[in-house]
């Protein structure tokens, strides 16, 4: 059974249909990438999974349970972490306060302290700047904070929305290295990226989206060498 199963979801913004029946699944331990152009519906999919949006029809199953209509704040405690597009850290709060917000649903204080240690180990820069206001961090550091915040809930599945957007090439590499480490430590990753080449190089499988539909899917390595994908998304 897949850890996450998305079945034929149709999502609307008012009158406009953003997803026209999207289905895919993510198995435990995988890194799955969703690639596609602007407006293809990638962010909408992630929002529908974590409950910021709800599908008009179709369903989302996580760990065998239907979460199609579960509100976002409950989904967090079920084990899905979301690193939103544009980072969206709480810029007037300190780095440490941001990380603690990530553990908002957890009651086990000592284990939260342990998770915080782990996050600091993974992102030493966050520890150095823990008392700094998040708004004063650089873009790359904010991205790390957004990831750290999501990891604080100790998710089984982490969904990441354009984590490399707007970052310098050095930070882009660093962020992808971190995603690899997160995955190797046992967290399942669903990744949305415009940087298709990078995404496909670290993913196991991938889905290609076009205007609200999945048009291709397969092993990431195969898609990386597929002529159509190369033309449309890899600029080769």
């Amino acid at each position: 059974m897949a850890l996450l199963e998305v079945k034929d979801i149709k999502v609307y913004y008012g009158m406009i249909q953003a997803l026209k029946g999207v289905s895919f699944e993510v198995n435990e331990g995988e890194v799955v990438a969703l690639i596609g152009a602007n407006g293809a519906g990638k962010t909408t999919i992630l929002h529908t999974i974590t409950g910021l949006l709800h599908a008009k029809s179709g369903s989302v199953f996580y760990n065998g349970k239907e979460i199609t209509h579960t509100p976002a704040h409950r989904i967090v405690s079920m084990g899905i972490g979301h690193v939103p597009e544009g980072r969206r850290v709480f810029s007037n709060m300190t780095v440490l306060q941001n990380l603690k917000m990530g553990a908002f649903t957890r009651k086990d204080k000592e284990e939260v302290a342990q998770t915080l240690e782990n996050v600091y180990k993974r992102f030493p820069r966050l520890e150095e700047r823990k008392n700094q206001r998040a708004g004063t961090l650089s873009g790359g550091e904010q991205q790390m904070l957004a990831m750290g915040r999501a990891l604080m809930s100790r998710p089984k599945l982490i969904v990441m929305d354009e984590p490399s957007m707007g970052l310098s090439p050095i930070f882009v590499n660093e962020i992808f290295d971190i995603i690899k480490v997160v995955s190797e430590s046992g967290t399942t990753v669903l990744l949305v990226e415009q940087n298709a080449k990078k995404a496909l190089s670290i993913a196991n499988r991938a889905y290609v989206l076009e205007t609200g539909n999945v048009t291709m899917s397969g092993m990431a390595a195969d898609l990386l060498h597929d002529e159509k994908v190369q033309k449309a998304y890899l600029g080769e």
Binding site: L52, R74, R88, V89, F90, S91, T105
Partner: peptide, 10 residues
């Protein structure tokens, strides 16, 4: 600060 991000924090 950010209702959406707050929801995503649970």
């Amino acid at each position: 600060e950010d209702k959406g991000a707050a929801q995503l924090s649970g």
